[in-house]
């Protein structure tokens, strides 16, 4: 047998794996920061929907409350990005920011709401 007869075939790389592809444990391991990003996007869509409802059905308390809640949630997650962008909070605390800011915001809004109504 000689080398030329048994020439190795050209190698075919597999296209790169995508995030989450063939990755059964990925979702359970998704870090909080990623969820923060995702939920901010989801809440943005929700705001659009609630705004439309709010304008078309004015003075519905439930819709107002939900809108306020969603806006607060969205804004606190935005605040997280701003704080990290300007290094006002060290990146070491990014996980804390991702849960604490929305929680604080929502509690505050809840209290404000209770004071008004």
């Amino acid at each position: 047998m000689s080398v030329t007869e048994d020439e190795a075939k050209p190698i075919q790389y597999r296209k790169h794996l995508r995030w989450g592809e063939h990755d059964p444990n990925r979702r359970a391991n998704t870090p909080l920061g990623m969820w923060a990003w995702l939920w901010q996007r989801v809440s943005a869509l929700l705001i659009v929907v609630l705004l439309v409802l709010h304008i078309s059905l004015p003075y519905k308390l439930a819709i107002q409350f939900l809108l306020l809640l969603t806006v607060t949630f969205h804004a606190t997650l935005g605040l997280r990005v701003i704080l990290l962008d300007f290094n006002l909070v060290s990146i070491r605390h990014h996980r804390t920011l991702a849960w604490a800011l929305p929680v604080v915001g929502l509690i505050a809004i809840f209290i404000v709401w209770r004071c008004i109504y």
Partner: peptide, 9 residues
């Protein structure tokens, strides 16, 4: 599993 975003050899 191999890393994402790199072609798999």
């Amino acid at each position: 599993r191999p890393m994402n975003h790199f072609p798999v050899i």
